[in-house]
């Protein structure tokens, strides 16, 4: 299960498009959660709510998972925020592929003038895709 999730997640990560990256991380997050629960041992599967028996699941990994889910959620939202902002920017109209800001990548500052290191002269294949 982990393997499938990870494979799919990684594949998405390595493809262009920020949305794919977001979804890829969501999947990876799921995978880690499964690993965490597995780390508690999957042999016991009763919720740790009322009576504690021999089949009661380890509660600690569940607490870990809860924390992890929430953090992943937070960062996912942040990524979406980035996606949203960049999409609303000058290159809007397309799912912002990573090449979009290639023309900007070499620069560092507010309009400090020229950009000699890499951006403007770089390969323009990914420039503006519409």
């Amino acid at each position: 299960m982990v393997g499938v999730l990870v494979a799919a997640g990684v594949f998405l990560l390595l493809r262009p498009g920020l949305l794919r990256v977001v979804l890829g991380f969501v999947l990876l997050g799921h995978a880690v959660n499964v690993v965490l629960l597995a780390a508690g041992g999957l042999g016991r599967r009763t919720a740790a709510l009322e009576e504690v028996g021999s089949d009661t699941a380890d509660p600690l990994p569940q607490a870990f998972v809860l924390t992890a889910i929430v953090i992943t959620f937070g960062i996912t939202i942040h990524l979406l925020g980035l996606l949203r902002r960049d999409a609303g920017g000058p290159a809007s109209g397309a799912d912002p592929t990573d090449g979009d800001d290639h023309t900007r990548s070499g620069d560092d500052d507010t309009g400090s003038g020229g950009d000699g290191t890499g951006g403007a002269g770089g390969p323009g294949t990914t420039g503006r895709r519409r």
Partner: peptide, 21 residues
């Protein structure tokens, strides 16, 4: 700041998120 941070921001978050994962 200004230009370029969009892409850098994405790289930064993505790399660190992978690290965290």
């Amino acid at each position: 700041g200004g230009a370029g941070r969009g892409g850098a921001g994405r790289v930064y978050v993505a790399t660190n998120l992978l690290g965290s994962t």
